[in-house]
């Protein structure tokens, strides 16, 4: 089946739903930190990332230096470079420079996960469908949280925190079930990440993710190099 704009939209619905709740929390947090609702919405629309925005709001609230802001965003969001590199290998020929420059705005953990799990080559229209509905959900959730944060009971907003992780689980568990190699890499990455959290708490969240995932992937690549036929990036 060909990837289309409509297909992108429909694949983006679970992402948008997940984003609505997470960005709702971001909206609440931003306003509590003294940022206006309008600025919170602009931040969400222009950044489209959870961890980076949360850290950014913390820096703004603390009156941090511009350099600190740039460095923090760089470290926390560096994983998007790896994702972009990975995605660049499975782009259709119709992905011209302009399309790449526009679509790169929407490389997030979730959009990357959904896009990279497609069997077909990625076309711009599919990516735009996926990105537009996700960005809409992210921005609307921020607006709702910023303007009306205290309507939902605390128990509900707390439980909503697990939504996006539930989505990650729904992607990695079936992969681990199907392939022992994937299972091994997934377990290594989780183990490294937990080691950083509990044994090396000084390492920032962004760096811990980068180091854990690179180490796990390199171990996987050394022990179980993929057959070229397995690689989605290979065309003949």
């Amino acid at each position: 089946m060909k990837l289309t704009f409509r297909k992108g939209l429909s694949h983006g619905i679970p992402i948008a739903l997940g984003y609505l709740s997470v960005s709702f929390g971001f909206g609440i947090m931003a306003v509590k930190s003294g940022i206006s609702a309008i600025n919170a919405i602009i931040i969400s629309l222009t950044n489209l990332t959870s961890a980076g925005q949360a850290a950014g709001v913390g820096i703004i609230a603390a009156g941090g230096a511009i350099f600190e802001m740039a460095a923090t965003q760089f470290v926390i969001n560096l994983r998007y470079s790896l994702m972009g590199l990975s995605l660049s290998q499975k782009l259709d020929k119709s992905f011209t420079t302009i399309h790449r420059m526009v679509a790169s705005y929407g490389i997030t953990d979730e959009i990357f996960a959904v896009a990279s799990s497609q069997k077909e080559k990625l076309v711009p229209s599919y990516m735009y469908g996926l990105i537009s509905i996700s960005a809409l959900g992210w921005t609307c959730g921020t607006a709702a949280g910023a303007f009306a944060g205290n309507i939902l009971p605390a128990s509900v907003t707390a439980a909503m925190g697990i939504l996006l992780y539930g989505m990650f689980i729904a992607i990695i568990v079936p992969a681990a079930k199907n392939s022992r190699k994937d299972l091994l890499v997934i377990c290594f990455a989780a183990a490294f990440s937990m080691a950083f959290k509990y044994l090396l708490p000084g390492v920032s969240f962004g760096f811990a993710i980068i180091l854990s995932s690179i180490a796990a992937s390199v171990i996987g690549a050394i022990l179980f190099p993929i057959e070229l036929a397995e690689s989605e990036s290979e065309i003949t």
């Binding site: 689980i169 290594f188 050394i222």
Partner: peptide
């Protein structure tokens, strides 16, 4: 490079796993 291709193949799962555990 088969090695680089392998790393890029594994990266998505590794990143998602590292982000999920233990944060979830």
């Amino acid at each position: 490079s088969r090695f680089i291709q392998s790393v890029l193949y594994y990266i998505p799962y590794a990143v998602l796993s590292a982000m999920t555990f233990p944060s979830i």
